[in-house]
Amino acid sequence: MDEKLSRKAISAAVDPLGWRFVLGVIRTCVPVGSLAEAVEVAAAVCEPAAEGRLRLDLRDRWVILTLQTPDIIWVSPADIELAGRITAIVRGMGRDTTGESAQIMEIAIDAADIAAVRPFWKAILGYVDETAAGGPTDPLVDPLGQRPTIWFQQMDPPRLERNRLHFDVCVPPDQAQQRMQAAIEAGGTLRYDAEAPAFWVLADVEGNEVCITTWEGRD
């Protein structure tokens, strides 16, 4: 089985390459000027070693590259090595890699009985079990990899005074303060920071909550 590296080690290895570690993957964006250029970049970085590890999202302004080892649902040394090769290819094309838009969003559902509610969300969204994680309380993922992962948070006791679905906005550590400040200036409030920098809880003017999360403070 591939080695499961610490969050700190992953971040230290990939940040100089223009990649960022966020939510169990490493991700970068390559700016392009057209969809045709995006296809050119995608064709250049695909190689046999990338099969099963590399996910590509092509747009007319960006190629978004994501790496993860599916068997461990985490970043392995092979992913980091591949990120280095991809960065060299991209830079050889006169382009660059940037992790400035590396955020990932999840949806968290509070539940008293996770095993009971999970099948409903799996069915209604057309989601599937996460690779190597198909237990009755494990997250659910979009089979096309486009929509947010759904995960379930144990609720005990019931909290009727607050929303039971919330977004987790997962960002690189150096982007968290800027994102929170922008939210506060837009009318939000900081509700909870006792477990920062792993996560902060903010709310809009009506009390609907959202978490800003990073990898720090979790190893």
Rank of each mutant, 00 (worst) to 15 (best):
M1P: 07
K4Q: 15
K8E: 14
K8S: 12
A12L: 10
A12R: 02
W19E: 03
R20N: 03
V25S: 11
V25T: 11
C29V: 06
E37M: 10
E40L: 13
A43F: 10
A44R: 11
L56S: 07
D57N: 09
R59E: 07
R59S: 15
D60Q: 14
I64A: 13
I64G: 06
L67D: 06
W74F: 10
V75G: 13
S76I: 11
P77Q: 02
I80V: 15
I80F: 12
E81M: 06
I86G: 02
I89H: 06
G94W: 00
D96R: 11
D96I: 05
A102V: 05
A102R: 03
Q103A: 15
E106M: 12
A108D: 08
A111K: 15
D113I: 03
D113M: 02
Y127A: 11
V128M: 07
A132E: 08
G134P: 05
G135N: 07
T137R: 13
T149K: 14
Q154P: 08
Q154L: 08
Q154G: 12
D156Q: 15
N163T: 12
D168S: 11
V171K: 00
Q178D: 02
Q181S: 12
Q181E: 14
G187N: 06
Y192K: 11
P197D: 11
P197V: 04
D204W: 04
E206I: 02
E206K: 05
G207Q: 06
N208P: 07
W215F: 05
